[in-house]
Amino acid sequence: MIGVAILLGITAFALMVIEYAGGRNFITQPIMVGFIVGLVMGDLKTGIIVGATLELAFLGATSIGAVIPPDAMTGSLLGVAFVINAGASAESALVLALPIASLALIFKNFYYGYIASLFQRKADRHAEEGNYKGIERVHWMTGLGMAAMLGILVMISYAAGSNAMSAVLNAIPGFVQTGLNVAIGLLPAIGFSMLARTMLSKSNVHIFLCGFALVAYSKLPILGVAIFGVVLAMILVQAEKEKTTVMAGGDDDDF
């Protein structure tokens, strides 16, 4: 039991690294996870079938807006492992997978929101000193830390069993979970503020507001925003060009 738990933990770690350092190649999708856990636990056929079942189940749970869905990787890894271990049906994998997927999501959000921000500060300091090796190191540490966290979570979860995980999930007070979700909606404002610091000024704040209002009222997707943005930029630049041309006496050979 402990041996399998360690093996699954290492598998989770490896899958995270291959996925996220390897160009988001979807090796952590349930269909792939089922296949690999099947290989690891010596029941390839069950692994593939349960993986495909979970793939379709999680398909409906893809991100809506900025909300990240329950973590399909940890969920399906343990779901498949429990099914192979207990000889349960493919459908029951989802019931076993969901509490762990939800718990993993809370951990992931915490990592993305806070641990990653701590690493961010380190990276800023290295940049200040022109130390590119330091940034390379921090980049790897951030990613490996996330993989290690999920690996350990998978290991403990398998050793403790699915019921124990549900109990842990229920023990976290509701308001803390809600509060963390609220915070996730606020954090991007920090990144945007840092970005706007170099661009925003009194003379162009209306352009920012224009983009904001467009999305607020129309919920236009980002590509649509970009198209309107290009048009607006062209109009404004063109207008300025005509103004300077008239003032300079019409000598213009740029285009």
Binding site: F212, A233, L236
Partner: peptide
């Protein structure tokens, strides 16, 4: 100048969709 306008416009839009 055009790039700045486009950039600000897009950041404005992303603010509306990502900050909640």
């Amino acid at each position: 100048k055009g790039a700045t306008i486009l950039g600000l416009f897009v950041v404005g839009g992303m603010c509306a969709s990502l900050v909640n």
